[in-house]
């Protein structure tokens, strides 16, 4: 891969003239923040402190519903609204990814294969966030670059009342954002979308369709047999 020249230097490294001010001056640490005497900084708090903490599901539902209401005012149509929900989920997913791997400590592993990262998402990630595994993980037969994860009863659908004008809205876009963030972050760039796929037992059943970028498949093909 051709890298851009180092962002540290703007002059040629062959030059023996006085070097320009290195860009790293931008990274100088500084702070104007006041810290409470009683409360430690975020760096003193243990990352496991709220590992098993719980709140009420309805607290989440109310917050999520209001998030949808607010986003709705700034968009033109359902697709835009789903994009906004995806962005919120994305921010959440980026954080859970690092938090979960940190919590694995010395045994933490990075996934290097498609199936590995998808299983991480449908098992560990899903269990950590939603206290259950995803219901299915499948490969889409017709398309090489597509996989599906399903959730029979996504928490984002519980109690959420969707505004009438937005009856097509799939709140699962939020979870799609979480999944997309984990895939992008772990170097498996993909687009993830949520689709309602009810069955007899589960009217709220949602399928997350994962479509990988071509470079992921190319890399996967190179690694077959290794």
């Amino acid at each position: 891969m051709n890298r851009d020249p180092s962002p540290f230097r703007t002059a040629s490294t062959a030059s023996t003239a006085t070097s320009p001010t290195p860009k790293y001056a931008n990274l100088t640490a500084s702070t104007n923040l006041r810290y409470s005497l009683t409360r430690k900084s975020i760096y003193d708090r243990h990352l496991n402190r709220t590992k098993t903490s719980e709140l009420s599901k309805s607290a989440f539902a109310f917050l999520f519903g209001e998030m949808v209401q607010y986003a709705q005012k700034k968009v033109y149509g359902v697709q835009d609204l789903e994009k906004k929900l995806n962005l919120h989920g994305y921010a959440v997913g980026q954080r859970f990814l690092e938090l979960l791997l940190w919590r694995d400590g010395r045994t933490a592993k990075r996934e290097t294969r498609i199936l590995g990262i998808l299983q991480f998402i449908s098992h560990q990630l899903y269990r950590a966030i939603f206290q259950k595994q995803a219901d299915t993980l499948e490969k889409v037969r017709e398309n090489e670059d597509e996989y599906m994860i399903s959730d029979n009863d996504p928490v984002v659908n519980t109690y959420i009342s969707v505004p009438k004008e937005m009856s097509q809205l799939n709140c699962g876009a939020f979870i799609a954002g979480i999944i997309e963030a984990v895939l992008d972050g772990h170097c498996f760039p993909a687009k993830v979308t949520a689709h309602t796929a009810p069955n007899e037992m589960w009217p709220g059943r949602t399928v997350f369709l994962i479509k990988f970028e071509p470079e992921v498949l190319e890399r996967e093909a190179l690694r077959v047999g290794s």
Binding site: N26, L27, T28, A29, S30, T31, S41, I42, Y43, R45, L47, A91, Q94, R95, E98, L99, W102, R106, G185
Partner: peptide, 30 residues
């Protein structure tokens, strides 16, 4: 391992975004 702990704490802050420079003095000290 210690750096990872500090990085995760930085990232968990909703006001910090991935790829932002980390300028916190407390982070630097730690």
């Amino acid at each position: 391992a210690d750096v990872y702990d500090l990085y995760c704490k930085t990232l968990m802050n909703p006001f910090y975004e991935v790829n932002m420079a980390i300028r916190s003095q407390t982070f630097d000290q730690k």
